[in-house]
């Protein structure tokens, strides 16, 4: 019996979505454990003894049974829609990521561009939340978010375009395919690869609003930023979206620079390699988050416009020259 493509795609998307939600809940535990270790603590321990294996489940259940509060002066429709509008792009980015050859929902030939374009939509949900809450902290946070996203979208895109240029294709599977062989990973590409990877990580930190770029949640001044008024399931959705976006960015980084599913061993190990590499990227970001202090708004803008943006433009130009000197690939 043959299944129509729409149905099989729907099933693939359903499985992927559930897998992502599962991984995302456990990646929060990983982060908490990692952060605790960095601060000489143990972290969650008693829920699901030992080492708190059931902590994420307990957190999820707790959030689900919490009271759902809508502030009286809030813009109800906007306030209620915001978590959904925030979550959908964060989940949609996984649609084009292939986890092994042929294992993914849709390996579009504009894969990387699709990822970048869809994750640019996340900001709409963010400022809907910030505005709809009708709270000055939330509004300030949304303004800072808009400011930061405008500044860091371009360096992020330019850094992600370096592997695309080296491959000559925006298709994710083609980018992984171009990284075959010993030292074939783009992060090992002389000079350009390392610089692009570092730029990617910095811009990813900013795009995910993590320390040192977390001025929009800044718990000491803005409490929790745009999500300050949210509670219960809506808060859970925003958290889920945020971590899903982080995971997606980690997967994209592992795919663009660390060779995706390539690794020693039989082919079925591919997805596991890929997951491990994505977790590695995630841990780098977490490591930075728990070691640095928050920097000021003007410093954040200066880093982007005066350093990161020119640097990535020059990097992209240099990559273009390298590709042209090598006779050009792809086209």
């Amino acid at each position: 019996m043959s299944v129509p493509p729409a149905v099989s795609m729907f099933i693939a998307a359903f499985i992927l979505l559930n897998a992502i939600v599962g991984v995302v809940t456990y990646i929060t535990l990983l982060e908490r454990k990692f952060a605790a270790r960095m601060q000489s603590r143990i972290g969650p321990y008693y829920v699901g003894w030992p080492h708190g294996w059931l902590q994420p489940i307990a957190d999820a259940v707790k959030l689900m049974i919490k009271e759902d509060i809508v502030p009286a002066p809030a813009d109800r429709a906007v306030y209620n829609l915001a978590p959904l509008v925030f979550l959908v792009p964060c989940m949609l980015v996984f649609a084009t990521i292939p986890f092994a050859p042929g294992l993914g929902v849709a390996d579009l030939n504009i894969g990387v561009l699709f990822f970048l374009a869809v994750s640019a939509l996340e900001i709409v949900g963010l400022f809907m939340g910030g505005w709809g809450s009708n709270n000055k902290y939330a509004l300030l946070s949304a303004m800072r978010a808009v400011n930061q996203i405008i500044s860091y979208d371009l360096p992020f895109i330019f850094a992600a375009l370096v592997p695309v240029l080296l491959t000559g294709s925006m298709q994710m599977s083609a980018i992984v395919g171009a990284q075959h062989g010993l030292a074939g990973w783009f992060v090992l590409y002389p000079v350009i690869g390392q610089l692009a990877f570092v730029a990617y990580l910095i811009a990813a930190l900013a795009a995910e609003n993590r320390v040192p770029f977390d001025i929009l949640e800044a718990e000491s001044e803005l409490i929790a930023g745009f999500r300050v008024e949210y509670s219960g399931m809506k808060f859970a959705l925003i958290q889920l979206g945020e971590y899903a976006h982080m995971l997606g960015t980690s997967f994209l980084g592992a795919l663009l620079f660390l060779g995706g599913w390539l690794g020693p061993g039989p082919a079925w190990l591919g997805p596991i390699w890929f997951l491990l590499k994505a977790v590695f990227v995630f841990l780098i970001l977490t490591w930075v988050r728990w070691s640095f202090v928050r920097i000021r708004v003007d410093q954040i803008l200066a880093i982007s416009w005066k350093l990161l943006l020119p640097a990535t433009v020059v990097l992209l130009l240099a990559t273009g020259f390298v590709v042209a000197a090598g006779g050009g690939r792809g086209l």
Partner: peptide, 23 residues
């Protein structure tokens, strides 16, 4: 391609700038 560019430039970029201006 047009789909992605439309999202990236208009829904992601232009709307963001407009919201910034309104705020």
């Amino acid at each position: 391609f047009l789909f992605a560019v439309q999202l990236l430039l208009y829904a992601g970029g232009i709307v963001t700038v407009m919201v910034f201006a309104i705020m």
